[in-house]
């Protein structure tokens, strides 16, 4: 057996195989899939009842919110398999790279929970008639929100020793940041002094850009720039943080 020649795995080595593993793991959770759109559904009904003219905003918001809560799933999944299954020991003491473990898990979760989100996006298209530009923007901000949320989720997951503590925090965190700021309702209804804050939060920044694109919000140029650049920089920075974090936390202290 040759052990004199080390082949250090490439960055992200093992990504597609681990993504596939996580996909198989998730696809069996029919109940979780069935209930994954409940919060969005309820909020859409509220908006429909209270002000049907805002349903386009709410549908796009539902897509953004769904991408954001993928982070909650990553947080719960990463912590659960590490604490209850010791899956991280099995997979990380191996040539599979830690960053592939993080990203593969996140992408596997995404793949399974994406179809209903796509359905909502199609519904949005039917209601609002998205231009190609808006559709591309929707795609772009969705990716950015997902990357941010999955990265936050993975980083947070490493901080817990007990799953029960997480479940409470994670639903609080992801629901509050996804529901309270203007994601399902127009940013114009939000107090203007506080707008810079919500424009720096990935879900509400994404929603604001979409609302502006479909003409449901008017933002000064500097706010557009704040939201767009902020979202892009945050997504990139959080992703890099999660990669570095994943590598560092293979070993505990």
């Amino acid at each position: 057996m040759r052990t004199d020649r080390v082949v250090i795995p490439r960055p992200f080595g093992g990504l597609s195989a681990f993504l596939w593993t996580e996909f198989l793991v998730q696809i069996h959770e029919e109940l979780a899939m069935a209930t994954s759109m409940i919060v969005q559904g309820v909020l859409l009904v509220f908006v429909w009842v209270l002000n049907p003219s805002l349903i386009g905003v709410a549908l796009l918001g539902a897509v953004v919110f769904s991408m954001f809560t993928m982070g909650q799933r990553v947080l719960n999944e990463a912590a659960y398999v590490r604490i209850d299954h010791k899956a991280s020991d099995l997979y990380l003491a191996s040539p599979l790279t830690p960053e592939a473990y993080f990203l593969g898990m996140s992408a596997g979760v995404l793949l399974v929970y994406l179809p209903p989100v796509v359905a909502v996006a199609v519904l949005a298209e039917l209601v609002v008639h998205l231009t190609v530009g808006v559709a591309l923007l929707l795609l772009g901000v969705s990716v950015a929100v997902w990357i941010s949320a999955a990265s936050i989720g993975y980083v947070l997951s490493t901080q817990f020793r007990d799953n029960r503590a997480i479940w409470a925090y994670s639903s609080l965190f992801f629901n509050v940041f996804g529901v309270l700021p203007p994601v399902f309702y127009p940013i114009g209804l939000f107090p203007s002094e506080l707008r810079p804050i919500v424009l720096l939060m990935p879900p509400s920044a994404a929603a604001a850009l979409l609302q502006r694109a479909i003409g449901s919000a008017t933002l000064p140029a500097w706010e557009v720039a704040l939201a767009a650049i902020g979202l892009a920089v945050e997504a990139l920075a959080l992703f890099l943080l999660a990669v570095v974090w994943a590598r560092r936390t293979v070993r505990s202290n």
């Binding site: 052990t3 082949v7 795995p9 899956a87 003491a93 191996s94 040539p95």
Partner: peptide, 12 residues
């Protein structure tokens, strides 16, 4: 890491 494999205590 490429050379090792681990059965963790209480792994599932």
């Amino acid at each position: 890491r490429p050379f090792i494999a681990v059965v963790p205590q209480e792994g599932k």
